[in-house]
């Protein structure tokens, strides 16, 4: 079915064994925490990458993550539903919101779509802040119970990891299929695609709903992991940070989005010590990548690097 070369298959296998055994050879809980955040950020990044792949820049990804997080934690805290139910409801809720908003806004082209998504993030945040009774106001929702049976960080890590791997498989397969090719077509020339018989508005809605559903699912895990969410988490900054992951990894590439998320999350944590300079270094790094590698990490030709290194060894 998938035509993998043996070497690639081996690489994937080694990587899988590697990520599954992280808790065995690292006991530092901080590293485990970092790994959980990496997993969730990867899901956020690859879901946004699919939206970017069809040529829409969404500044509102945080809103859908937040919608999932709020849905899940409110159902858990106020209704008392178990995580295994709220998790799916969170995804469906985000997907439904994406469906209705997508139907309205996806018809807008280019910058106009981006502006509405930006406004939308603020609308969501304002709603969460304004309705104290329902959403807890600025302080948000506290004491969100962890999923039953998942109490330690290591258990959480496996939950996040499996969720990430499933998401990655879904998005990667989508992007490599004819569905992904249709997304590319939308990005390069939506009118031509429409004129050869593809229902482009339906196509866009489907992509948007799939991406936002996974963002919502990720938001749900995030909420139950943190145990406390507030409107200040799901702001423009989160949205932009996810865009930065995708930009550094290579816009529109699923693999790139994942790589960018891993790289930048780890880099960001390493830079926490330098405080104020963190955003400065982040920014400079982003500019550097855009200038030197406009296609992002995904555009690096690994074969070429391998050959270069071999040549050097000979010399």
């Amino acid at each position: 079915m998938i035509k993998f070369k043996i070497r690639q298959l081996l690489l994937v296998f080694v990587a899988l064994v590697g990520v599954f055994t992280i808790p065995l050879w690292i006991e530092n809980l901080y590293v485990i925490h970092l790994s959980i955040m990496v997993c969730l950020n990867v899901v956020f990044a690859i879901s946004l990458a699919l939206i970017l792949k069809m040529g829409n820049l969404s500044l509102g990804h945080a809103a859908y993550i937040g919608a999932g997080a709020y849905t899940s934690s409110m159902l858990a805290v106020k209704v008392g539903l178990p995580f295994w139910l709220t998790f799916y409801i969170a995804g469906i809720a985000s997907g439904l919101i994406a469906f209705f908003i997508g139907r309205i806004t996806l018809g807008l082209r280019g910058i106009y779509f981006t502006i509405t998504t930006f406004g939308l993030t603020e609308v969501f945040r304002s709603i969460w802040i304004a309705f104290r009774g329902t959403f807890g106001g600025p302080s948000g929702i506290m004491n969100i119970p962890p999923p039953p049976g998942i109490e330690t960080k290591v258990q959480f890590y496996y939950l996040a990891l499996i969720f990430m791997l499933i998401s990655f498989f879904v998005f990667y397969r989508l992007s490599k299929s004819s569905f992904g090719l249709l997304c590319d077509g939308l990005r390069f020339n939506w009118l031509l695609e429409e004129c050869v018989g593809v229902d482009t508005s339906r196509m866009k809605t489907i992509v948007f709903v799939i991406a936002c559903t996974f963002a919502g699912l990720g938001g749900s895990i995030l909420a139950h992991y943190l145990g406390h969410i507030s409107p200040s988490i799901f702001t423009m900054f989160l949205s932009t940070e996810i865009i930065v992951y995708c930009a550094i990894g290579g816009l529109g590439s699923i693999l790139g989005g994942a790589a960018g998320a891993v790289f930048m999350t780890v880099l960001g944590e390493m830079l926490f010590g330098v405080g104020f300079f963190r955003s400065l270094i982040f920014g400079i790094f982003l500019i550097g990548v855009i200038i030197i590698l406009p296609g992002g990490l995904a555009s690096i030709n690994w074969n070429m690097i391998g050959r270069l290194m071999q040549k050097r060894r000979i010399a």
Partner: peptide
């Protein structure tokens, strides 16, 4: 991409 019309979108998704 030109040939996607006769196949419909659904199949591209399941594909």
């Amino acid at each position: 991409l030109g040939g996607h019309n006769s196949k419909g979108l659904g199949s591209g998704f399941l594909d």
